[in-house]
Design a protein around this nucleic acid. Structure first.
Ligand SMILES: [Mn+2]
Ligand SMILES: [Mn+2]
Length: 557
DNA sequence: GTTGGGATTG
DNA sequence: GAATGTGTGTCTCAATCCCAACTT
DNA sequence: TGACACACATTCAA
């Protein structure tokens, strides 16, 4: 099945056609119904059928309710050209089971929805007018019953809430494959704020394979949302209840990644609440770093250094994650020292360092250092990850957006599925390897310039256009040997998500070469991912140093 | 009175 | 002084409006 | 809607 893009205007329109919200939702629903008829439950089908049976104003209004950030909405605030009569339209939504008027809800939320002055007015709170709104809400909650609060607010300021949000969310989830994007993508694109690559969308390889996949992912997203609630974060019982809600990932990489991330959050929070044994048990279910690091740290804290050491040995034996390995080496050294165990390990390679005294102006240390290291012979730029990720993204642009089956499934992607995981490389191995080989032939840089020209401004997670001036690219290509770029690009290609971070802050060009410099203000140390790149730079002969800045107090001297 | 953070909008 | 843990700001799509804090 | 990098606080071991 071929995906048909909505036709969008070429130039930036100042206004959009009336009813754009409904048009966009219909586009989403049509595509999902065509692609996933077997993954929709009866509730989903009924939802769509009954939605279509609504009058157009009612359809518009329902979508408006759902695109608000908070579930409770003051009826007064509903004012749209597409909905001439809000009251009767809301009534239609109620009758059809798409909205409810003045539902019984938490009194605090209801009060929070109102303005401060109205609360004072309605609840005759003559108390200090300087009281903060949250204090005002507290005092009203203390003085009035929930039923009174509900009645008073419903009388002065009727409110509504959309129903069947789960069906709506599921439709969007089936379309986007994530819980982060929504209908606003259509507007953003149409207004020209973001330009997406025009890759081909292949409906023959679906993002979701079964209904269980959809429900599992939806549940994961719900639990992750619950984990933002401070009341849950501070209660180990409720945290474990959250964990129990998580369906099994059934060894599916995409689901496992999300499962692991959530369990890591829960377990870490259990640690903070001193529920150490519960945390340990949860970490054991997680395959993703830093689960084993946390387990080792817990074991060490529980006076079980031998078990901790054993776990470190296991990591050193079977891990492919550079930061996990780095941790295991270092932690094993500490443990061995403490327990008197012999533990043979080569010491970590030393990092070359130098020091500068700079005036403290309040500006970011990287900016100040870059200026201090710039002069007539040197150009020093604060680039962090942006330069190398950007050059990689430009050189491999066509490979990144190559129509690998399943890689592209909706029109608003800044990269293929799995771009940030270890699955990126194997699916594109031959393409990537031959592109890397090209770097041995003169003029290989032309491909970077070609993509820089032809794809300029198009969204790509690896390419931060505003940070990549032609001058910077030119200096980089002139001063950095191809062999150096080659080894960096190879690492990036193997796992763009992992290796795309930890690059030094600065690059400093001089007449005959270049140098990478990581700036450290007092109280800052090399982080594990930065250490990992330094190690790689040392192996590859790439010049990199650590700059320790000490501040000169402007008042002192 | 100003301002700054959100929510809303296209 | 290491090592470890925790909190913060910055990307955000950009213009506009509203409202709750303030005298920046 | 996280990822990432930094700043700051606390703890701990020579
Ligand atoms: Mn940095
Ligand atoms: Mn730095």
């Amino acid at each position: 099945m071929e995906y048909a893009r909505l036709t969008m205007v070429d130039t930036r329109p100042t206004t959009l056609p009336a009813g754009y919200l409904l048009r966009n939702f219909r586009h989403v629903a049509d595509w999902v119904l065509a692609l996933y008829p077997d993954l929709l439950c009866e509730a989903d089908m009924a939802f769509h059928r009954q939605f279509q049976a609504l009058s157009e104003p009612a359809q518009h209004l329902y979508l408006r309710l759902l695109t608000r950030t908070r579930p409770l909405i003051a009826v007064e605030s509903l004012s749209y050209a597409e909905v001439p009569n809000v009251t009767s339209t809301l009534d239609e939504l109620q009758q059809a089971g798409f909205a409810e008027l003045n539902p019984q809800v938490d009194a605090a939320q209801l009060l929070e929805l109102q303005t401060r002055s109205r609360l004072q007015q309605w609840f005759a709170q003559n108390s200090r007018s300087s009281a903060k709104k949250t204090e005002l809400v507290e005092s009203i909650l203390a003085q009035h019953s929930a039923a009174d609060i509900h009645n008073i607010i419903a009388r002065h300021q009727p409110f509504t809430r959309a129903l069947r949000q789960d069906c709506f969310d599921r439709l969007l989830l089936l379309f986007f494959g994530n819980g982060r994007q929504d209908l606003s993508e259509f507007i953003i694109t149409e207004l020209g704020h973001v330009r997406y690559e025009q890759y081909r969308i292949d409906g023959s390889t679906r993002y979701f394979q079964s209904r269980a996949d959809v429900e599992t992912l939806q549940r994961y997203l719900q639990v992750r949302e619950q984990l933002e609630d401070p009341a849950i974060l501070s209660d180990s019982i409720r945290l474990r209840e959250c964990h129990a809600l998580l369906p099994d990932h059934r060894q599916q990489p995409e689901l496992q990644r999300r499962f692991d991330r959530i369990v890591l959050i829960i377990a870490r929070q259990l640690e903070r609440l001193q529920a150490t044994d519960n945390a340990l048990a949860l970490y054991q279910q997680v395959a993703t770093h830093p689960a084993r690091e946390r387990r080792a740290r817990i074991l060490a804290k529980q006076q079980q250094p031998q078990l901790a050491l054993q776990l470190c040995r296991q990591i050193l034996d079977d891990s492919h994650h550079p930061e996990e390995l780095e941790f295991a080496e270092q932690f094993a050294r500490t443990l061995a020292r403490k327990t008197g165990t012999h533990f043979a390990l080569a010491p970590a390679p030393a990092v070359r360092e130098f020091t500068l005294e700079l005036p403290f102006t309040g500006a970011a240390v990287e900016i100040v250092a870059a200026q201090a290291l710039s002069d007539a012979q040197h150009v020093c730029v604060y680039v962090e990850n942006l330069l190398f990720c950007g050059l990689f993204g430009l050189l491999f642009w066509d490979i990144i957006f190559a129509p690998i089956p399943g890689a592209f499934f909706h029109p608003f992607q800044r990269g293929p599925k799995h771009l940030h995981t270890e699955f990126f490389y194997p699916d594109r191995k031959t393409l990537i390897e031959s592109r890397l080989e090209e770097m041995a032939t003169p003029g290989w840089q032309q491909r970077i310039w070609d993509h820089f020209e032809s794809r300029s401004g198009i969204a790509n997670t690896l390419v931060a256009w505003e940070a990549l001036s032609p001058e910077l690219i030119d200096m980089a290509l002139q001063h950095i040997p191809a062999s150096h770029l080659h080894t960096i690009f190879r690492q990036l290609a193997l796992h763009p998500g992992l290796y795309g971070s930890g690059f030094p802050d600065l690059i400093r060009f001089s007449h005959n070469g270049y140098e990478l410099i990581e700036v450290k203000a007092p109280n800052d140390r090399l982080q594990p991912n930065q250490r990992r790149w330094f190690r790689h730079f040392a192996d590859a002969g790439i010049p990199a140093r650590l700059l320790n800045v000490t501040w000169i107090d402007a008042d002192d001297e």
